[in-house]
């Protein structure tokens, strides 16, 4: 599905019965949208967001976001601090539900269904749309337990005493899962001899790759990353960047970044959010950084603003 004009989009919406009846008020968003033609890409959209609005109390944090995220690619979200890019990312797996003051309106379609529907299964959703945070946050457990934490809690792997007694021990499957996830996250060679050690003993970069491995262990389709390298040194950062590019062959990666060079290096398409919670421009990364439609985006990218 590709966005060509506003009309076809509103048609699909009425067909798929939007959860919230949201009426567009004000002309600002229309004006902004006029500045650039909608991003047109080949292939399937993994996530399609339409008319997404987020409010923190009286603060209108995200305004009428419409965006389709193509599968098996890297989508970068850039913009100045406080522009709502992290809020937007956290809407995609409903992590904003955890913030009590947040009110979310609009549609986020994943596989043709709105994840904000009342019957959405949050556990399944977050298994399939994983998340990696700004600062590495492994649990104070062993490396192995960190990886198998998700599958264990979901009941996919059982290595408990009862399972062992009943001969249904999944220990071998667990080892395979740990090895596969760590290999995917390019960490296996560094830690395979100390899987039982506490994860807090790893370096910052290793911890972040462990968090990526932990996310991969639940077998996600989309990986959301919130400035995954901002707390790391340049070498660890470049490892994470290589990893993101590799992951995009199999997964759909959405990454928030402060660093425009990073967005340029790793992403296929870039969305620029600017102050006020507006999505100002969304296009091929090359196009955004060489010839942006919007003057504001050009100012931001060349460093005149933000």
């Amino acid at each position: 599905m590709s966005k060509t004009d506003t009309d076809s989009r509103s048609d699909t919406q009425t067909e798929s019965q939007p959860l919230v009846d949201h009426t567009v008020e004000g002309e600002t968003s229309e004006e902004i949208r006029d500045e650039w033609t909608n991003y047109d890409f080949d292939g399937e959209a993994k996530l399609s967001v339409s008319e997404l609005n987020v409010y923190y109390g009286d603060d209108h944090a995200l305004k009428d976001i419409d965006m389709e995220i193509p599968e098996q690619s890297v989508t970068a979200l850039i913009g100045p601090s406080g522009c709502g890019k992290s809020t937007y990312l956290r809407c995609l797996n409903r992590m904003n539900d955890r913030i009590k003051a947040a009110r979310i309106e609009g549609n986020v379609e994943f596989e043709g269904k709105n994840i904000y529907d009342a019957d959405a299964n949050l556990v399944e959703l977050r298994k399939r749309i994983g998340m990696v945070f700004q600062s590495p946050n492994p649990f104070p457990k062993s490396i192995r337990d960190n990886i198998s934490y998700g599958p264990r809690k979901h009941g996919d792997i059982d290595t408990g005493l009862l399972a062992r007694v009943l001969g249904r021990d999944d220990g071998e499957r667990e080892e395979r899962l740990v090895e596969r996830s760590l290999k995917q996250a390019a960490l296996w060679d560094e830690v395979n001899d100390r899987l039982g050690d506490n994860a807090l003993g790893l370096s910052g970069g290793q911890q972040q790759r462990l968090c990526i491995a932990r996310c991969l262990a639940t077998d996600p389709e989309v990986i959301l990353m919130d400035e995954p390298a901002s707390a790391l040194d340049p070498i660890a950062t470049s490892k994470i960047e290589d990893l993101i590019e590799e992951l995009s062959e199999e997964y759909t990666v959405v990454v928030v970044t402060h660093n425009m060079q990073q967005a340029q290096r790793i992403s296929d398409q870039t969305a620029v959010f600017l102050t006020g919670g507006e999505l100002v421009e969304y296009d091929d990364t090359e196009k955004i950084f060489s010839d942006p439609e919007s003057q504001r985006v050009e100012d931001y990218i060349t460093g005149k603003f933000g």
């Binding site: 994983g130 998700g150 996310c215």
Partner: peptide, 26 residues
């Protein structure tokens, strides 16, 4: 740290399981 709770929630683990296996041990 709240980051433990965030990490657990992002893996789709529910609140009680998070409390039992991450928050209480810490």
């Amino acid at each position: 740290p709240d980051s433990y709770r965030d990490a657990s929630a992002a893996l789709g683990v529910n609140q009680w399981q998070t409390i039992r296996s991450v928050v209480l041990p810490a």
